[in-house]
Amino acid sequence: MPLSANARIKWLVAGILFAAFWASAATATKIGLAFAQPLVIAEMRFGLAALIMLIIAHLIKGHRLPVGKEWKQIAIYGLLNITIYLGCYVIAMQTVTAGIGSLAIATNPVFISFFSVFFLRKRLTWPIIAALIVCTAGVLTAAWPLFAGAEITTGGLLLLLFSMLCYSLGAIYFSSLKWNDLSLFTINGWQTFLGGLFLLPVTIFYYEGSSNLFNSTFWWSVAWLAIPVSIIAVQLWLWLLQTNAVRAGLWLFLCPLFGYVFAAWWMKDAISTYTVIGVILVIAGLLLSKLKTG
């Protein structure tokens, strides 16, 4: 049937674009870091993404503004998901390679499943425990040879993993709340705006004019992080989840592969045996997290 064929094509294109855009965040961040301080990149990204999403939500689509306790919910979500998660992530990327950054991002679903046991009263299963161990081992394996060449620091890797934990907590917090009829564009736009606002005092305090060169490459990095990553990838992911939540998770397996392709292409990151083993372990961990137990 033509409709079925079109639906399959739409699903395939959306999944591939999501995985590619989502995985490109680490490389785009590393490119921007060559010209600006990490928090400056973050603030510009948040500001641009929030402006576009809020214009779409309120001026184009005419969605309502948050009211009452919804502002508090959005503020807390923005604090976890933007201020802490992405603030720590962009700082960590100063001393972590683009490949490792994208590999760590791919482990988020496993951390979310693990923390949901404590915050959403989900049942802790052996596949989740095994997946957490295997994914962590994968990231450490891929990172191991990079310590010797100072391409990765222990502090940077720990901060990166901490940022993944904060993202997972933010996702659990978001899913535990009732948002009534508030649109996703409204929630995403305002949480991005407020998260960036909370981070602004820290950015101003550490700002050094001589460390920032606002050239075309810097703005390309910011624009890519704001539009394809923060807006398009997130909207594609939400569409995939709404269409088929079980199958949507399978697209996450492509993220480490895309991430290392971009890192090797743009940043000339080396792909070693450790890299291959690390990626395989992370993908295996993601697969384990999908197993059902009786």
Rank of each mutant, 00 (worst) to 15 (best):
G196L: 05
P66L: 08
H63Q: 12
E43N: 08
G249A: 06
M44Q: 03
G259V: 15
I31W: 02
S116P: 04
I172V: 15
I31T: 07
Y207G: 02
Q191V: 04
L86M: 09
S221W: 03
W190T: 08
Y89T: 04
T107P: 00
M53P: 14
I152K: 08
N215R: 11
L39W: 15
W266V: 14
L103I: 14
L132D: 07
K122L: 02
T95Y: 06
F262C: 00
L240M: 14
F205R: 09
A57D: 07
K178D: 13
H58C: 04
I152P: 03
S168K: 05
V276D: 10
V117A: 05
L161T: 05
A25P: 08
S175P: 10
K122H: 14
R121Y: 13
V229A: 00
L120I: 07
V229H: 11
S176W: 00
L254F: 11
A28S: 10
I41V: 13
L194Q: 02
W71K: 00
M53C: 09
F115V: 11
G155Q: 12
L165C: 07
W237E: 05
A23F: 04
I74M: 07
R247P: 01
L3D: 12
W239L: 13
G170S: 13
F114D: 03
L288G: 07
G87W: 13
A150G: 08
I82F: 07
S102H: 13
A14Q: 10
M44D: 12
L80E: 04
A36I: 10
G196K: 01
Y85Q: 13
I60M: 14
F115T: 00
Y260I: 13
A171M: 08
Q235P: 13
